[in-house]
């Protein structure tokens, strides 16, 4: 295969350490389809290429280039594959997930090729002059639009931020990519410990509803109240940094400046005062509900519905009322 459409968008698929397609790929391919023809790059163990390529096609990848992964070498093999794919495809843009691995690979690729980078985009679009990326910055207080002065930009896309989905492709064109190893030094990956088995709850990133708990929950045991309301609403579970620092819940649930930024339809803050760093991660939610004992908590300044009260009496009543209505 030598011909690629002039509007090819090279998408670095995100593959999880256990060898599956990450959930972020649907948004990546959705975003790519909005600005051109997606060409997906799959860097994964050879025996999974066929299955994962089919999976990528179901998310809209009409063309899939495959390359072997080297799980023992950090990032460099992915960058080598990305460089080879870019040289072959001559894309109008390169998209990657703004995950730890995606942004590492995108960063090195941009440094190697001298490309302009647009980071943590919440949307991409094409205008008369090329590809532009939209960003939500300073915790959503501002929106900006960035573009490359010329040439194909490298854009990392915020996880869960793009709702657009591409039409499935029944039979993708799959071909093996020839990759010349760059020989750049890479750190050795000696072992990997997966996060504890994910629950049946939705992922925090991209969730339509999020229930978060703060220090007001008082203990790790009592934090279960957050889980209960999340399950009643079908929501993901988040937390303030204070709750994470107090050990109520792992850091991966932290919402805020230094945690995950969420933009759900509904955000419920339980026992969270609303420090500016927490607001920076959730203030773009469509509807915000807050329950807090302290009537002066700053979270009430941005809440659409605020309850001054004890979470341990209000929330059980709320759950009971929701269950009664659903019957």
């Amino acid at each position: 295969m030598t011909d690629f459409p002039a509007d090819s968008v090279l998408v670095l698929l995100e593959v999880t350490p256990d060898g599956a397609l990450a959930k972020t790929n649907a948004g990546l391919l959705g975003a790519a389809t909005g600005i051109g023809s997606p060409v997906a790059l799959l860097v994964a163990p050879a025996d999974s290429h066929a299955t994962l390529a089919q999976g990528a096609a179901a998310l809209g990848a009409g063309t899939v280039l495959t390359a072997d992964a080297d799980p023992g070498a950090l990032i460099v093999p992915i960058v080598d594959a990305l460089a080879a794919a870019s040289e072959l495809v001559h894309p109008v843009a390169v998209l990657a997930s703004h995950s730890v691995e995606g942004r590492d690979a995108a960063a090195r690729f941009a440094a190697r090729t001298g490309a302009a980078v647009s980071v943590d985009a919440v949307a991409v679009e094409r205008d008369d002059e090329g590809i532009v990326a939209h960003h939500s910055v300073f915790g959503g207080a501002y929106t900006t639009v960035s573009a490359a002065t010329f040439a194909a930009p490298v854009v990392t896309v915020r996880q869960g931020a793009v709702d657009a989905r591409a039409e499935p492709v029944a039979t993708p064109a799959v071909s093996a990519l020839q990759v010349q190893a760059s020989g750049r030094p890479a750190a050795a990956v000696e072992s990997f410990e997966p996060l504890e088995a994910a629950s049946s709850r939705p992922d925090l990133r991209g969730a339509a509803k999020v229930v978060s708990g703060g220090r007001g929950l008082g203990s790790a045991d009592k934090f279960a109240l957050v889980d209960q309301l999340a399950d009643a609403l079908g929501a993901a579970v988040g937390a303030s940094r204070a709750a994470v620092d107090a050990g109520y819940i792992p850091q991966s649930h932290q919402v805020g400046q230094t945690g995950v930024s969420v933009s759900p339809q509904l955000y419920v803050a339980l026992g969270i005062s609303g420090a500016i760093q927490h607001k920076a991660g959730m203030q773009t939610a469509k509807t915000i509900v807050a329950i807090n004992k302290d009537a002066d908590a700053p979270i009430f300044d941005i809440a659409d519905f605020g309850v001054v009260g004890d979470v341990f009496t209000v929330v059980p009543q709320l759950i009971a009322a929701l269950e009664a209505k659903s019957k």
Partner: peptide, 22 residues
């Protein structure tokens, strides 16, 4: 090539909604 900001806008501040005391 360089990445440039082509526009920037401030998001309108959120207004507080209903607040009830339990």
């Amino acid at each position: 090539p360089r990445s440039i900001v082509v526009s920037a806008a401030e998001r309108p501040p959120r207004a507080a909604g209903v607040k009830i005391v339990d």
